[in-house]
Nucleic acid binder design. Structure first.
Lengths: 159, 159
DNA sequence: GGGATATAATAAGCTAGCTCATGAATTCCG
DNA sequence: CGGAATTCATGAGCTAGCTTATTATATCCC
């Protein structure tokens, strides 16, 4: 029965998210960075030379939101925008040297935080949890793209 | 191996939370309410006559944060603060009549949202997911209460 | 070439949510 | 009684996110 899940899922997710965010922000603050900025920094590390627009899409956020976060990372000397050689509209994002040691510490912090959060959940379940989160993300993405009222004339769910 | 979970759990949770929040807020906006306010309203429904401080504790948020949300719900005529008879510092929260029909619609919306978000996840897994979220919440609560370095052996804070 | 259109980034201005610091009223308790 | 703690509210300020609009550049296609 879905009843009891129905009862709690949305709000529980909300509470967990708020608690985790506050906690991770507080810990990350030791390194002078917020969690949102950290997420951007980590993405740049794994994909140096990305365009802002690509990164925004990957992170499921609006380009302007990303711009603000990048502004701060640039102010702090952690990354830099470099113009693209063939398309002068484009900025490509690169780490600056100062980011390296910080990223090392942040990796350690991430392990700590994850281990603490997932304590008591065995690795198999943890993997399933992560996969379910991805599923939910996908479901929400779809829902946002074809809003519920609209049947989207391909899959009319009410027979 | 925990490696790949370690790699993604924190940031994936963040992305899911942002997407779900934006989506739920957008849907809830049809009824002139945000998700955060909705959560408060739903709690008041299930626990009429609560004090603000009790509610804040239940919802794992700071009293001041709750005060702001309650301000808006009062402005919109959905709930009201009534003074406690024996302790005049205390406000007790009650639904106003206007809240009833709204709560009915919101219950429907919640079912819809939950069903959409969890599409493709079977009920057993959905229950496990919810239980894991509760576990994480508990873990984070503990972590925040005794910050990481401190072993906090049995709370001998005095003496 | 040149107009229409698309894309990249940004600007301006707003909101929600959260916090800290402060203060006021009240109650508790030694 | 009188100091300490509790309960709530206010004000100021922050991050992060959104919408709408603007600027600059590229591309498409006649």
């Amino acid at each position: 029965m879905r009843g009891s899940v129905d009862m709690n899922f949305l709000f529980t997710l909300g509470e967990v998210q708020r608690m985790v965010r506050a906690w991770a922000d507080k810990e990350a603050a030791r390194y002078g960075i917020t969690r949102a900025q950290w997420a951007v920094l980590a993405k740049v590390e794994r994909n140096e030379g990305m365009k802002q627009s690509e990164l925004a899409e990957q992170m499921e956020m609006q380009p302007i939101t990303l711009t603000r976060l990048i502004d701060k990372l640039c102010d702090n000397g952690l990354i830099e925008r470099r113009g693209d050689e063939t398309d002068r509209r484009v900025n490509r994002l690169h780490l600056k040297k100062a980011a390296r040691p910080l990223l090392g510490k942040l990796a350690g912090l991430r392990s700590e935080l994850t281990a603490t959060a997932l304590e008591g959940i065995n690795p198999t379940d943890a993997h399933r949890l992560l996969a379910q989160l991805e599923t939910i993300k996908e479901n929400v993405r779809n829902a946002v793209q074809n809003p519920s009222g609209e049947p989207s004339r391909k899959e009319q769910r009410y027979g």
